[in-house]
């Protein structure tokens, strides 16, 4: 038998309508202009009105009032819930958007995943050096990863040196290319890590092989000095970012393989938090790499300057990744 309320629906709605309308106008205002634009009085009214509405919804459901009333109360509750609790969700998740926090969170996350990073490093650099020495020894090895005509063209352009530099328009074009290509590869390398890390491992291996083979070939053709001068400026950012993106993918995959005491889904979501930091950090590093590669690496600056710059860049990257945000790390761990 139905629960009959003491108050019928019409009377209930009439009594409470005033508050509902007030809350609705607040919610609409907050939806359009954001919560921050509400005045102090409006904020103060929002929360009691929302709680009253929750009570009304519960009463309406218990009294089995008609569907349109319950539906509209439910819709209003849902919208108000988003406003009341959404502020909290936003402020916690976009907290790391603040530049300083983000800049410190990234190296901390890298160090937290040092095992994955080491494996990613090996997955990239072992095939890299293997391919490098293989094509140094036998240049035809490189033809397996790139076509002969491509490699010859590449060798020619490196042999020519950088005396001519690059026009600025050309530089902008190459910057676009490097961003599109390299950041795309890094993000794919990260994303496919969800397949138990296999995708990331594949990208790391294949990119390591290809890069090693091409550099080995160009060196074997006698343009080794020039290609070193070219890559030394940006490679610490670029290869570092690829390794970190791959490591993040491996960590993501590992969270599925070995979830520990969590369910696999919960473990994946947990791993996702750090992975987001790592992937966006890697993307930022690649943006830096792309601008160096486009506007500096092929410029007509003297070789000595370029190599010194490259050394300093490598040192900076290493110091940043190994020491950045140290000391505050305990705080970060405790927060988790």
């Amino acid at each position: 038998m139905a629960l009959t309320s003491h108050v019928n629906e019409g009377a209930f709605a009439m009594r409470r309508q005033h508050d509902w309308t007030a809350l609705e106008s607040l919610v609409r205002h907050a939806q359009v202009h954001g919560v921050k634009r509400l005045t102090a009085e409006e904020i103060a009214r929002l929360s009691p009105l929302y709680r009253d509405l929750c009570a009304d919804l519960a009463a309406a459901q218990a009294a089995r009032y008609s569907a349109p009333l319950v539906d509209s109360l439910q819709a209003l509750t849902a919208s108000a819930h988003t406003i009341v609790y959404g502020v909290y969700a936003r402020s916690t998740s976009s907290r790391s958007i603040r530049f300083k926090d983000a800049a410190l969170a990234f190296p901390r996350a890298v160090r937290r995943h040092r095992t994955a990073m080491t494996i990613a490093f090996l997955l990239f650099f072992v095939p890299f050096f293997a391919a490098f020495f293989a094509s140094m020894h036998d240049p035809s090895f490189a033809f397996r990863v790139a076509s002969e005509s491509q490699l010859r063209g590449l060798t020619e352009s490196y042999r020519a040196g950088f005396a001519g530099g690059r026009e600025s328009g050309q530089g902008a074009m190459m910057a676009g290319f490097y961003v599109n290509n390299n950041v795309g590869i890094a993000l794919r390398c990260f994303a496919t890590g969800i397949f138990f890390g296999l995708g990331s491992a594949f990208y790391l291996l294949s990119n390591g092989l290809a890069t090693g083979a091409i550099i080995g070939y160009v060196t074997s053709q006698g343009a080794g000095d020039n290609i070193l001068t070219f890559i030394v400026g940006h490679s610490s950012f670029e290869l570092g970012a690829i390794v970190i993106a791959g490591g993040a993918g491996l960590a993501l995959g590992w969270s599925l393989v070995s979830p520990g005491e969590k369910t696999r889904m919960a473990s994946l979501r947990h791993a996702g938090k750090d992975a987001a930091v790592l992937a966006s950090g890697a993307a930022a590093m690649l943006f830096i790499a792309a601008s160096i590669e486009a506007f500096w690496s092929a410029s007509s600056a003297p070789d000595v300057v370029k190599r010194t710059f490259g050394g300093v860049a490598l040192l900076l990257v290493l110091v940043y990744l190994f020491l950045g945000g140290r000391g505050g790390a305990d705080v970060e761990e405790a927060e988790r």
Binding site: A78, H81, T82, Y85, G86, Y88, A89, R90, T92, S93, S94, S96, I97, L187, R188, F190, A191, T192, I194, F195, G199, G272, K273, A275, A276, A279, S280
Partner: peptide, 25 residues
Amino acid sequence: VTIEGRPIGFREAALRNVLRAADIL
């Protein structure tokens, strides 16, 4: 929305959309 029914932030937006690269395969 998040699975708790809250609005998403940038972290969630970035993650779910970068992972498109895996979903599209």
